[in-house]
């Protein structure tokens, strides 16, 4: 019991969970951490090859979403919500569409070369391409 507690503590302190950012296999663009961030906060709308980039996020409050927001976007979920509400209610931007879970993100990204999403580490299969792990 004590061990389990310690493990949980370690996990939350060092974030054991990892996140994979995925795109369609047909997407040959290079993506660094900053470009991924810019796409997910609506500041960049295309991949390096010029094609349109459409981000897909996951349900608010799910572990993988929190993980991605904190590691890649450097924002807490409420900071991110405040950021988007400022853009949504002034006509300057729309937040990424939300998928229900890893499986839905995989399905969507596999069928559309413009999409970019993230899934829990290890969830990605050959239908998509992992471009970065966090």
């Amino acid at each position: 019991m004590k061990k389990l507690f310690l493990l949980t503590l370690l996990c939350s302190a060092y974030s054991c969970l990892a996140v994979d950012v995925i795109v369609n296999p047909a997407n040959t663009s290079t993506l660094d951490e900053n470009e991924i961030k810019q796409i997910f906060i609506g500041k960049s709308k295309s991949f390096s090859d010029g094609s349109k980039a459409l981000p897909i996020t996951q349900a608010d409050g799910s572990t993988v979403t929190d993980e991605f927001n904190e590691k890649v976007l450097n924002k807490s979920s409420s900071q991110l919500k405040a950021y988007w509400s400022k853009l949504v209610f002034t006509g300057k931007g729309t937040p990424p569409k939300e998928a229900a879970d890893d499986a839905e993100v995989l399905k969507l990204v596999a069928s559309n070369p413009n999409l970019i999403g993230f899934v829990s580490s290890g969830a990605a299969d050959s239908s998509v391409k992992v471009v970065k792990s966090f």
């Binding site: 405040a82 950021y83 509400s85 209610f89 002034t90 006509g91």
Partner: peptide, 22 residues
């Protein structure tokens, strides 16, 4: 854009009503 909008004078002008955003 065209129509009726908020005048973006100050930094917070156009989301003045959205208290959650600040």
């Amino acid at each position: 854009q065209a129509g009726k909008k908020r005048l973006p004078l100050f930094y917070y002008s156009d989301f003045y009503d959205v208290g959650y955003a600040y």
